[in-house]
Design a protein around this nucleic acid. Sequence first.
DNA 1: GATTCGTGGGC
DNA 2: TGCCCAAGAAT
Length: 312
Amino acid sequence: MPDILHGFGSQRSMNLRADDLLSWFAGAERELPWRAGDVTPWQILVSEFMLQQTPVARVLPIWPDWVARWPTPSATAAASQAEVLRAWGKLGYPRRAIRLHECATVIAQDFADVVPDDVEVLQQLPGIGSYTARAVASFAYRQPVPVVDTNVRRVVARAVHGQPDAGTPSARRDHADVEALLPDADRAARFSAALMELGAIVCTARSPRCDSCPLKHSCSWRLAGSPPATGPRRPAQRYAGTDRQVRGRLLDVLRDNVVAVTRAELDLAWPVDAVQRERALNSLLSDGLVEQRSDGRFALPGQDRNDSTASR
DNA sequence: GATTCGTGGGC
DNA sequence: TGCCCAAGAAT
């Protein structure tokens, strides 16, 4: 490898030694169910979909039931979108549930029900981006590829670069950073899991637990005195009153009703602002999260249709 | 590159 | 309380 590429990386990796991290992980690893030995690549993929932008604690009660009910891509594909959306419940970002269902359909139909092991192939599947493709290749197939999520970026920013927080994501730079840290191929996947774990439970975004960090004697940020972040921060994301909240309310109604509902019933979910309500409903329709029946009623997509006379 | 897309817990 | 953030992806 050219010195211009390798020199800096090996220099920096002194601040984050794989052995330090792996020995810590051996004692600190959480026993998450999707890390058990008998979990299949598909089930790992399901966990990664659920974990996108979602805390572990909220996935824990959903994932076991989900994979017991739909253990394979073909089993998932055989379910209706409505069933999948109901099982997804209030996990958030319900488009992920639709994409997971689409992903299952593609794998069942085009890949003989076998999750691909190649990063490039995985990344072409619905709902799978750079992180998820690498997570599956690494955690399910033990490929020594860098796995970069928000935790990894923060740990690297601090321990390696001495900065309080990760900067703007840059796939090429982020992957190169982690590539330079990866140990031998046999331990690469475990190293990535450990890196994420450290960011999740020790090197957290707010009030990191530096006292119990395995890198506390080498971390560049701590050695620099743990300087706080400076400069402009992103405006805080709001939720109350946004279209996202309205979409959530509308979906709430549809999840709770096993029969199609009238527009008037949907109006009750967000009575004040009809313009915003319409906008949210239209976006749900175009996202394929809601469908409108010929009688004008609304339901989750694929929900049973012989319900106009059914009781609730 | 900047936005949009849920939901709820911690502080 | 209100703000911040959480194993990202798609556009």
